[in-house]
Write a protein that binds this DNA or RNA. Sequence first.
RNA 1: GGCGACGUAGCCAAGUGGUAAGGCAGAGGUCUGCAAAACCUUCAUCGUGGGUUCGAUUCCCACCGUCGCCUCCA
Length: 399
Amino acid sequence: MQLFDTARQEVVPFEPRGGRVGIYVCGITPYDSAHLGHAFVYHVFDVLHRRFRDAGLGVRSVRNVTDVDDDILRVARERGVDFRALATEQIRMFDHDMAEIGLLPVDAAPRATEHVEEMVGWIVRLVDDAYAYAVGGWVFFDSGMYPDYGRLSRLDHPTMIELSRERGANPDDPRKRHPLDFVLWQASAPGEPSWPSPWGQGRPGWHIECTVMSTGALGHPIDIHGGGDDLIFPHHESEIAQAEAAGVAPYVRHWSHVAMVNHEGEKMSKSLGNLVFVRDLVRRVPGAAVRLLLASHHYRTSWTYDDHEVDAAAARHRRYVAAMQGGGTLSHEAAHAHEQRFFERLDDDLDTPGALDELDAIAAELSSGSTGVAPGTEGQQLLGRLLGVLGAETEAVPA
RNA sequence: GGCGACGUAGCCAAGUGGUAAGGCAGAGGUCUGCAAAACCUUCAUCGUGGGUUCGAUUCCCACCGUCGCCUCCA
């Protein structure tokens, strides 16, 4: 399997260690419904998971849940519910949506609120080693102590500082020693949930949870750590800093980032309101069709969702179903050749669009000119099996 | 400012130094009581201008244009 590594900026062979692969993907903040962008990211890692599994590797996949942060507290306040209840409800809906489109359950889905104690421990180590400092109940990571900050995103310090200023962040916060210092721990405001710490009652910053929970669940180095490419900076950048500063180095062997999904001319995001929800799509077409829609885009190329794609994906799905129900046949040689090319494509940096081309070819051969009634032959079985690798298993027969 | 992607038929999109897969939509047809589905057929000279070459959509240069991300974010 060849995969693009963000850190090295090139497609490199992924080498499993001892027949096992640990995958950690940054999950959601559960305060709103899952949209296509989320689905795309988790679909990509699901295909990767399935591919490794089918290749005989022991896969352990972990996807965290950021169940305490400004957004979730805000929404909970607006709706007058407890933030934990809101999180639990949203997680259930998220899991339901992902199951609808055929994602395998992850092996572990740790919630930030369940690991605060470990985070405090990690932060204490950083403070003890002078990589972090406390100011009035808050703790910041001292980026001045970590010159490599910016390595993953390939941004230099002046640029990062200028950017953060433009973006409304506050590099000039007088409490910070260096403009790029980031929050490890913050004092809770009145009414906010809080946990005890050496610096008073507070709650963790965003970045620390992933470093703590990923290494906690998978040890280190993490084989594959990924998420949407909007997380490269500052989230993953900061994870590396706080991990390596704590002596966990190398932290990650292979960084994998999935491109953004756009809609109506802009990145699909909560703040812009241009969302396409998974829930709405699965009401229109089978979950497998949604998977085919996602698989028709390469994970490193950002794309713009268009409503027509649903029809195209549904049509492709119907063709596959028809091919599996029909009595067309494929020679043993042809089946073998198709299967081989399918996996070559998939193993070449997860080229799912290329793999789909191969399935199209199989379906075309199975469909052309046949009206037979003897499904279940080698060709049909192959098509069904390969669809399974993409997470687009087709239900027996929806007539 | 930094990083990156991209310009191929109405739309999505693959691809190669020798005259362009596939899909969606559209058109025609087969099947069907009608229809749907399925199947068959049909539909482009590859952003602009140069250059290299026997020959470029594919290589080089320039230009134009589009887009994404950059401490809320997958």
